[in-house]
């Protein structure tokens, strides 16, 4: 990036595109600098701080912070940290499982919604609701719903003869339950984007397909899905990013347990920093996560550029 920047700056100054007086240059800076300052002060600076801390141990002596330099120790320790490993693998399982479920369900509901005329706005209003509710409240709702003793889920399953189960308390079903809760939380978001996408598709293509004798399934597979690919890709990326950050529901529902079965990366970070007060090690973990995230973005962007260039 730095090289590219230097190259652009050293190229001969192009003639002014628009007339630009001193007032305009001033306003150009005035309008941009608040955002720039906020991002620098509250994202670049803290990350630099994390980076620095990740090579240090922080201890307290007489109310004074003592920083000792430990080099790469924390990063080496990461590799043997089973919690970190569990955090990453659980986050991946959680993110892909939940997002896949949301995409499929959201698409199905959106498709159904386009088939009706009356009540579409009502359904949309209902389906939006979970998006707006605080994650922690969703956690609370499902902590009640999934309660072993009185939860509605066990009650309902009891009606069809299934014995009550401790969904959040048993290692086999805890992660699955959290995924289901996340699907409940975010399917509406996928639904909303898909509905907007479907509603903006050109109608004449469908009429042409119908004229060509396409049935409902053929229409879906050969017309709707290909046309929806941009929306699907964007929605998937958008949701995946948010799913990687999951914290609130896990905090409330399981706190990472039982054992490490719902240990997701945000929660691991939280524990290192605030429960165990290991600022140095936590910073190393944060830096690693930030690095992985940036890598993911760079890969995604360059993949998009490559496909954009070929198509």
């Amino acid at each position: 990036m730095a090289a590219a920047q230097a190259q652009i700056q050293s190229s001969p100054r192009r003639p002014t595109q628009v007339f630009e007086d001193r007032g305009q240059r001033l306003w150009r800076w005035l309008t941009f600098s608040p955002a720039l300052a906020m991002m620098l002060a509250l994202s670049v600076l803290p990350i630099a701080n994390l980076f620095l801390t990740s090579f240090q141990n922080i201890t307290w002596a007489d109310g004074q912070q003592v920083r000792t330099w430990v080099g790469l120790t924390h990063y080496q320790a990461l590799f043997s940290d089973s919690l970190f490993g569990a955090g990453i693998s659980n986050t991946l399982i959680f993110a892909f499982g939940a997002v896949a479920g949301q995409m499929v369900l959201g698409f199905a509901m959106a498709l159904l919604c386009t088939k009706i005329v009356r009540g579409r706005v009502l359904y949309r209003a209902i389906f939006i609701l979970p998006i707006l509710i605080p994650g922690i409240v969703i956690g609370a709702i499902w902590k009640l719903m999934l309660n072993f003793d009185f939860g509605l889920v066990n009650k309902a399953l009891g009606l069809v003869g299934i014995l009550p189960h401790d969904w959040l308390g048993s290692p086999e079903t805890a992660l699955f339950s959290v995924i289901v809760v996340d699907i409940w939380h975010w399917t509406p978001f996928c639904f909303l984007l898909f509905l907007a996408g479907l509603e903006s598709l050109p109608q004449d293509v469908f009429e042409a397909a119908r004229m060509d004798g396409a049935g409902a399934w053929q229409e879906l597979i050969y017309v709707t899905l290909p046309l929806m690919i941009p929306t699907i890709v964007v929605t998937f990326a958008f949701r995946l990013v948010l799913a990687f950050k999951v914290f609130d529901e896990v905090y409330l529902l399981t706190s990472g347990g039982p054992g490490t079965s719902t240990e997701v990366i945000s929660f691991t970070l939280y524990q290192r920093f605030f429960t165990e007060d290991k600022a140095g090690y936590g910073s190393a973990m944060s830096v690693t996560v930030i690095f992985l995230v940036s890598l993911l973005l760079v890969v995604a962007l360059s993949a998009r550029r490559r496909t954009g260039a070929t198509s």
């Binding site: 803290p46 990687f244 970070l269 600022a279 944060s286 930030i290 973005l297």
Partner: peptide, 22 residues
Amino acid sequence: FLAWTMIFHMIPPVALASAWFT
């Protein structure tokens, strides 16, 4: 700038929370 906002948006807030706290 926009690429940075994207990266920032992807970072779990918890990762930044301790730095903010400090």
